[in-house]
Each structure stands twice: as structure tokens, then as C-alpha cells.
């Protein structure tokens, strides 16, 4: 290759190469970029430069705890001090140490306003195997919304201004833990109901519930796809509750 061709190729390459974005992007832009990525992807990218390495995250999203591990949990907690949103999906039997690392982390995620915890069992597991038996979030005073999906803690403590949204199984719906947080409960979704002959107890008590979604195979003797109750909210593919007990419980 001639010198001229080489020089021309080099100039072309320089033109094609983008600016060194990581050296000049402000921290809050990087924080926004990180909020669009799963934690695992962000960890890999965090070694780009000093700004990305030291970045404290605004939003933390873990879509598979199996990848996280205890080291990952430590990594996460070391950068979540100013996080406002945390979404954690736990799969199967959670490795020992992860729940403890999360619950006892220092600094804790004091700024959290939104928290979503999800457990996806690998098999038809009858118990909650997340290891998050006692969830105490009462010190997170900024917390406004908590969504628990498929989790069955023994105890749950929340700040009084938090709105709780729960997706649970019918056989877990009568657990006392839900009764203990009734004033905060806004949405409940129950799936896997084979036959619904009477409303779960939780729906017959005074509460602040605004939306109830029941996914039932049969209601009384009537086969159904699903049921929904919502104040002014419809749900396509579901039927709206109109029976008196439902209203009594949901008022």
C-alpha cells in the first residue's frame, strides 16, 4: 500500500472515529445512560473511564439475580446511595448471602422512591425461596411505591406514605403479612386461581385498594378468563366486578 493510500485511509478512519465521548460526557448524562441498562451491562461499561467507574446510580435494574451473586450485590450496594429506583428480579433459589448483603448494605439506598422486587421460581416451588423473610423498609422515608411480585415475606414494614402493589398467588393471599400492610395496599393481583367461590379475606376488609385483578379459571360455576376491579379503570380481556362484597371490601 502506498504512503498516499495509507495516509488517505488514516484520515478517513479519523473522520469516522467519533469523539471521545466518555471523556467529556457529564456525570448526570452517564447516570441517565446507566438508567437504560441492566446492572450487569453497566458494570461491564463502568470500566470505561474514571467518571463511569465512580458513578453513583440513579436507577438500578437487575433482571436476573443469578448473574448478580454476592460480589454483584456488593458492587450494586456500593453505588446505590443516591438511587431513586431499584428493580430486582430474583430467580429460583437465591444464593445465600445476597438478601443479607442487600438488607444490611451500608450505605443503604436512602433516596429510593420506587422499589420493585420480583421472584421468578424455576420450578413449581411452593415456598418463597428468596431469603427475604423479613423486609423492613420503614427507614426509607422517601419510598413512594413498592411493588412485590411473587414474594411472600413473613413480615413487611413500610413507611406510612408508601403505596404497595402486590402480585401474589391465591394461597398466599390470606397470609397475615398482607393484613399488616392493608392501609398501604393499592393494587393486588392474584393469579393461578382455579376456582373462585368466595372472595379472599383481604378483599372483604376495609383498605385503600384501588385495583384488584383476579385471574381465575372458574368463578362459582361459571368459567371465566379473569376478573378485574378498578376505580374507573377498565382492563381489556377482563370483566369488571359489580358484586356488593367486592365493593364493600374495596371502598
Amino acid at each position: 500500500m502506498s504512503e498516499r493510500q495509507r495516509a488517505s485511509r488514516s484520515t478517513k478512519r479519523k473522520k469516522e472515529l467519533p469523539r471521545a465521548i466518555e471523556l467529556s460526557l457529564p456525570g448526570d448524562v452517564w447516570r441517565n445512560v446507566a438508567s437504560h441498562m441492566d446492572l450487569w451491562d453497566w458494570v461491564r461499561a463502568s470500566g470505561l473511564c474514571k467518571t463511569t467507574w465512580k458513578l453513583e446510580l440513579d436507577s438500578v435494574k437487575v433482571s436476573d439475580s443469578r448473574i448478580l451473586g454476592v460480589e454483584g450485590a456488593r458492587w450494586m450496594t456500593s453505588r446505590w446511595r443516591r438511587a431513586r429506583s431499584l428493580s430486582l428480579s430474583l430467580r429460583g433459589t437465591v444464593k445465600e448471602g445476597i438478601p443479607q448483603a442487600l438488607m444490611t448494605a451500608q450505605p443503604c439506598a436512602n433516596e429510593l422512591t420506587q422499589l420493585q422486587l420480583e421472584w421468578i421460581p424455576e420450578w413449581d416451588e411452593a415456598e418463597d425461596l428468596t431469603g427475604l423473610a423479613d423486609i423492613d423498609l420503614s427507614s426509607l422515608i422517601h419510598l413512594r411505591s413498592v411493588c412485590l411480585m411473587g414474594l411472600m415475606p413473613s413480615t413487611l414494614a413500610l413507611p406510612p406514605t408508601t403505596e404497595l402493589h402486590v402480585i401474589t398467588r391465591q394461597d398466599w393471599s390470606s397470609h397475615p403479612v398482607w393484613l399488616s400492610v392493608l392501609p398501604m395496599l393499592r393494587t393486588i393481583t392474584m393469579a393461578g386461581i382455579e376456582r373462585l367461590n368466595k372472595l379472599p379475606q383481604i378483599l372483604s376488609l376495609p383498605s385503600s385498594l384501588t385495583t384488584v385483578l383476579l385471574s381465575a379459571g372458574q368463578v362459582g360455576g361459571c368459567p371465566m378468563q379473569g376478573l378485574a376491579y378498578g376505580r374507573g379503570k377498565g382492563n381489556s380481556g377482563t370483566r369488571r366486578f359489580t358484586s356488593a362484597p367486592a365493593h364493600a371490601g374495596l371502598a
Partner: peptide, 27 residues
């Protein structure tokens, strides 16, 4: 834009991102 940048760097190692973007390390 931030979503666009996230899509560009997702799944790449820092070395790979530096290579693709022509970046210099500051470590």
C-alpha cells in the same frame, strides 16, 4: 439520546467500546 448511547455500549467490554469508539483510557 441516553437510550441511544446505552444501546451502543450494551454488551460490549470496556476494551471493545474503546476500540469501537476510538477512546483513550484515563486509568
Amino acid at each position: 439520546c441516553c437510550e441511544g448511547i446505552a444501546n451502543l455500549i450494551r454488551g460490549k467490554s470496556p476494551e471493545h467500546v474503546r476500540q469501537c469508539f476510538g477512546l483513550v483510557k484515563d486509568f
